[in-house]
Write a protein that binds this DNA or RNA. Structure first.
Length: 149
DNA sequence: GACACATTTTGGA
DNA sequence: TCCAAAATGTGTC
């Protein structure tokens, strides 16, 4: 393992700060303050609507076998442009919707674990930190890319 | 140990 | 229809 690298790229009004090393992403944050440094090309491509996958990058949140890891893996399995409800994820991860919400709120790597694709079962967006608008913009981006095909 | 959560479901008014 | 409450796992204090 080398040193932890930090970088950031733009997404609308937001800065996407990434902490990563050797293809493993440890943390992704949405900030308004600037962070210096390069990010893996998968991020810039994804946020520009020119990539649908972060492969071969992996999230540190996926390793391990706790309930949270099961949830993160289930969320990571949601195809690009599609959504699942908290209840769907809970069923797949053999836990309960409330726990899924908790896991999403503490998701260390948004985007890679696409928590923006998890919405409430009635179609309302649910929540997103730090701003629900980010979730909506990400879903819009994916819809737009999908429709181009 | 109690409490807070990015939920869902159910039952009563 | 609408509202209140229970179910329920994990992290934080």
């Amino acid at each position: 393992m080398g040193e932890l690298k930090q970088g950031a790229c733009k997404f609308g009004l937001w800065r996407v700060a990434v902490d990563y090393d050797d293809g493993i992403v440890y943390r992704v944050r949405f900030l308004q303050s600037a962070v210096e440094g390069p990010v893996p090309v998968q991020f810039t491509r994804f946020l520009a609507g020119k990539g649908m996958s972060f492969s071969p990058l992996v999230s540190s949140a996926l390793s391990g076998d706790g309930t949270y890891q099961n949830i993160y893996r289930a969320v990571a399995g949601i195809p690009y442009g599609e959504t699942r409800s908290y209840a769907d994820i809970a069923k797949q991860a053999l836990t309960h919707p409330r726990v899924v919400g908790n896991a999403m709120a503490r998701n260390p790597t948004p985007l890679i674990v696409p928590c923006h694709r998890v919405i409430a079962s009635d179609g309302t967006p649910g929540g997103f930190s730090p701003d629900i608008r980010i979730k909506k913009e990400l879903l819009q981006l994916e819809q737009k890319v999908i429709r181009r095909f």
